[in-house]
Computed example of a mutant assay.
Amino acid sequence: MPLQLTIRRAQPADIPQIVAIERSAFDDPWDERTLQESLAYYPETFFVAKDNGDLAGFVAGGVEDTGEEVYGHIMNLAVAPGYRRRGIGQHLIRRLEQEYAVLGASAVQLEVRITNAGAQEFYRRLGYRVVLHIASYYANDEDALVMMKWFRF
């Protein structure tokens, strides 16, 4: 069945479904409190994808202002198991990138596990490039790659 996808800003009532998707997607998921805090701190850059009322995925982003540059930061992205590989992640990232452009960001960054080749390829297809390798970034001492995409206006 074709998707009836809508993307909107997340709301506190979405948190239980977001938690469920997070737990299905990651071995070390963010807990409910962390997701609530992310939504409270960055409500303008936390989006959900809905399909006929079902929460299909989410993206949580932040904004970092160095005083010289504004950067978007993709902090978390997950898609519900039954919705994966259907373009939802890409739609969520594109919507978040639009918001970052409106907010004056010159680039977007994210961290990805060095072992997560699928996520790295996903972001490469969207124009992100590896800029840094961080040793022992994750709780289990796994390394991370920092990937960035620069906006050209």
Rank of each mutant, 00 (worst) to 15 (best):
E99V: 04
R86E: 07
K50N: 07
I114P: 00
K149T: 10
Q98Y: 09
G61A: 13
V48G: 01
V102S: 13
I21A: 10
E111Q: 14
E121Y: 06
W30L: 10
G89L: 02
T45R: 13
P43R: 06
V130E: 05
A80C: 01
D14I: 08
P12D: 14
V146W: 02
R95V: 04
R86S: 03
E37Q: 08
H91G: 03
V131W: 07
G57K: 05
R129Q: 15
G127D: 11
P2W: 06
N116E: 02
L110C: 01
V48E: 00
D31A: 08
Q11D: 07
A107D: 15
D143W: 05
E142P: 01
G89F: 02
A49S: 04
S106Y: 04
E99I: 03
V131H: 09
A25P: 00
I88N: 09
I7P: 11
F46I: 07
L110V: 01
E37T: 08
Q17S: 15
E68V: 06
E142Y: 02
A49W: 01
V146A: 13
D54Q: 12
K50F: 00
Q36C: 07
T66C: 12
N52F: 07
W150T: 09
V112E: 13
A20G: 01
I18M: 15
H91Q: 15
D27I: 02
F58N: 10
I93P: 00
E97C: 12
L110D: 00
R85V: 05
W150K: 13
L110T: 02
D54M: 09
R85F: 04
R9P: 00
L39S: 06
S136Y: 00
A135F: 04
N140P: 04
A20Y: 01
A101M: 05
M1A: 14
I93S: 05
P16N: 14
V59D: 09
T115P: 00
F47I: 09
E97A: 15
G82C: 05
A20V: 05
T6W: 02
L103Y: 00
I114H: 01
P43E: 11
R9D: 08
G87M: 11
W150H: 09
L145R: 11
D65S: 02
L103H: 04
L55W: 07
R9A: 08
A56M: 05
E37D: 11
R33T: 11
G118K: 07
R86A: 01
A20S: 10
I15F: 00
H133G: 05
F26I: 02
L103N: 02
A107T: 11
R85N: 12
E99M: 04
I15N: 08
E121C: 12
Y41I: 01
Y71A: 12
R95Q: 13
